[in-house]
Amino acid sequence: MTQEIENFIMYMREERHTSENTELSYERDLKKLCQFLAEQDMEDVEQISETMLNSYILYLEKIGRKASTISRSIASMKAFFHYLAREERIEHDPSENLKAPKIEKKLPEILTVEETERLLEQPSGTSPKELRDRAMLELLYATGIRVSELIHLKISEINLNLEFVTCKDAHKERVVPFGDKAREAVLAYLENGRPFLVDDDACELLFTNCSGKAMSRQGFWKLIKHYGAMAGIEADITPHTLRHSFAAHLVSNGADLHSVQEMLGHSDIATTQVYNALNQGRVREVYKKAHPRG
């Protein structure tokens, strides 16, 4: 089964153009399944049945795996066995009828507008690092782009005159506008910050770490945690917090979901609708606090 998993990952990479994170997730899930089946003396993919896969799912539940983890494992199994059936390595897809457990949707943590403003004001100095940090936070909140997109953004992908950034992936690209505050912060960084951080003229990245190299997600996570603590924000801030706040604030101020979907780069409108639900929850909360008979 190990060789089939390797072939599957290669297929996903070369034919489906999946991301590295997706490939690692599939590989990790399938290797755990492989280990479980090996302990049952089952290593030939042609002998794997729906009953065996259901036994594995029950095992995951027994050892306390979360519903989201089990759902991801089922998705990995479905993709893998569908591939094997398509390649005629197996006659019947044993994962066809597997059902993922229901997952309670957790609304994303967002900041209030006032908390957001406090956060953005924290890097207020004129050192190269603070200019960079201010520009990163302002641009992230102004566009709602993913942190991975922010740290990989190239200078050529931001247009300061027309105020928009271009985000690209393997399948599509989208253009996201931003406003004057973000433009001013990025300009200040480009003029008085970046030249002191980056001494390699060949570097195309807009933002780098203090050594002039690519910044990691962990590096940005520490950065936003640091400024969140400085701002006295008690909410659990993650690299995605400003993206969620960007979307929620737009929706609460009347932006239509399809426009927000396009800016966020969601392929399915259902993913964006969570911000509508979040907004309705806030409305109910305000009602209960403010209405005399709430």
Rank of each mutant, 00 (worst) to 15 (best):
L30W: 06
Q47V: 04
L60Q: 07
E285P: 07
K102A: 09
I5N: 00
S211D: 14
A79Y: 05
K225A: 13
A67N: 07
I269D: 04
L197W: 03
E15W: 05
E27T: 11
H240L: 09
Q35G: 03
K222P: 11
G193Y: 14
M10L: 14
L84W: 01
K66M: 01
A142H: 12
L107M: 13
P123M: 01
D201F: 12
E61D: 00
A290R: 05
A270F: 00
A182N: 11
T241G: 06
L107S: 06
P128Y: 08
T112I: 08
R65M: 13
T166F: 11
S71H: 04
C210T: 14
T2W: 09
M42T: 12
G265Y: 02
N279A: 15
L119E: 01
G179P: 07
M10Y: 14
L257Y: 10
Q273Y: 09
E61Q: 11
R13S: 08
S252G: 03
D133F: 08
S76I: 03
R282W: 13
Q35F: 11
E234A: 14
H266M: 11
G64F: 03
E43C: 07
P195S: 09
M52Q: 15
G254T: 05
F220D: 04
T143Q: 08
R194S: 11
R134G: 05
L60G: 02
I224E: 10
E163L: 12
V251T: 05
R134C: 02
L137Y: 12
A67H: 06
A67I: 01
D200G: 08
E39P: 10
D169H: 04
I237D: 06
I90L: 05
I90H: 08
R146S: 03
M12V: 13
E104H: 11
E104S: 09
T271D: 04
W221A: 14
A277Q: 15
A270C: 05
E121G: 13
D133N: 15
D268Y: 01
L53N: 07
S148W: 08
E87D: 13
L120N: 03
N7F: 06
I57R: 02
T112C: 10
G294T: 13
G179Y: 00
K288G: 09
M136I: 05
Y83E: 05
E262T: 08
I70R: 02
D133G: 05
D93A: 05
S55G: 15
E15H: 13
M10W: 07
